[in-house]
């Protein structure tokens, strides 16, 4: 069996603050195969974006990181110099962000921004790099790409700017694409188009896609596997069909029923909300971080380590509830 494209285990990120250490990631883990899509879902502050930042080596300078395994394409970089991992960025892995306005330099032409990494890594000439950029712009659906290379980001619409970001990220032919809420700032009709472009390119290039979203609709539409994060840990993962059909963790179950779904929820009736709020992560948390909001919590929930139940169909859940094995194959 070949090594997975991305294999992360026991990832910890701690950020010192005035009020003490913030344990933002508390042993998160991810596995992604080439050509597959893993959606990382969860609410604000759960650590999903921080996980992406850690993967890209873009953590705040004062953050401390450690990992049990930090491997791309079979090479484990845990404990190695950060420089070794940084060399992968922009070549073997690339990232697109939620707001293309903050990622594009408004004072540089699109052509210069897109070809920067190519000229750096592949030592291409300006003309060669521009040809690649034109082909890529054409591929993501931007009309008349040659003349648009000389334009500035403000001359593109919001959806086109996100297409630009995708083109720039994929121009170096990475193996892994990390997309952090790539469609959250877009209208729904544009969202569908952008997800379509990402999915098509993924097929063509055999990309592994790590897509971060808070929108369960996006996850259901494009994920092969889903990982649910809560308070800095992945608390449940699984193939998308199984995880949506039989969510095992009480938090995942709560998320699924809290959103109105046309045809499923009755309009005008109260939605089952999750009471309480996410615990503060300063000083760390022991046991299950969800237990204060959980209707099923018992004595065993307060101690570490939490039992991890693996499903035969793939994925796992971290929960003390004994009846779990019956819920999902």
């Amino acid at each position: 069996m070949t090594a997975p494209l991305l294999d992360i285990d026991d990832l910890h990120v701690t950020i010192p603050t005035d009020r003490g250490d913030l344990h933002a990631l508390r042993g998160a883990g991810l596995r992604l195969e080439s050509g597959k899509t893993l959606c990382l879902v969860g609410e604000s502050g759960c650590g999903k974006s921080l996980t992406a930042m850690s993967l890209m080596g873009l953590l705040p300078r004062k953050a401390r990181q450690s990992a049990g395994r930090f491997a791309l394409m079979g090479t484990d970089y845990a404990g190695k110099a950060p420089k070794a991992w940084a060399n992968l960025r922009g070549r073997d892995m690339a990232m697109i962000f939620q707001d293309p306005n903050q990622s594009l330099n408004p004072t540089m032409t699109v052509g210069v921004q897109m070809t920067e990494a190519l000229r750096h890594f592949e030592k291409l000439s300006k003309a060669q790099a521009e040809d690649r950029a034109i082909a890529m712009l054409d591929r993501v659906g931007i009309a008349d790409p040659r003349s648009r290379l000389g334009q500035y980001p403000h001359q593109f619409s919001g959806g086109q700017r996100q297409r630009l970001m995708i083109a720039s990220a994929l121009i170096g032919r990475p193996k892994l694409l990390i997309a952090d809420e790539p469609t959250t700032a877009l209208d729904v009709t544009i969202q569908a188009q952008i997800l379509q472009v990402i999915a098509e390119l993924q097929d063509e290039l055999g990309l592994g896609l790590l897509l971060i979203t808070h929108d369960l609709g996006v996850a259901a539409a494009i994920a092969d596997d889903v990982a649910v994060m809560y308070a800095g840990r992945v608390i449940e993962t699984g193939p998308v069909a199984q995880l949506f059909a039989v969510p095992a963790h009480p938090y995942t179950q709560g998320l699924m029923v809290a959103i109105p779904v046309p045809g499923r929820t009755r309009p005008g009736t109260p939605l089952p909300a999750i009471s309480g709020r996410v615990p503060g992560l300063i000083g760390g948390v022991t046991g299950c971080a969800f237990r204060d909001r959980c209707a099923l919590a018992g004595d065993g929930c307060a101690s570490d380590p939490l039992p991890r139940h693996a499903f035969a169909s793939g994925g796992f859940v971290e929960c003390t509830r004994p009846s779990l094995s019956e819920t999902r194959p």
């Binding site: 569908a192 188009q193 379509q196 999915a199 609709g217 996006v218 994920a223 069909a241 949506f244």
Partner: peptide, 19 residues
């Protein structure tokens, strides 16, 4: 608009959009 809305249920293809 209604057709482009993603439902949180796996198994639906991405909504087709005129290109």
């Amino acid at each position: 608009l209604v057709g482009a809305t993603l439902v949180p249920e796996p198994g639906h293809p991405l909504p087709a959009q005129p290109k």
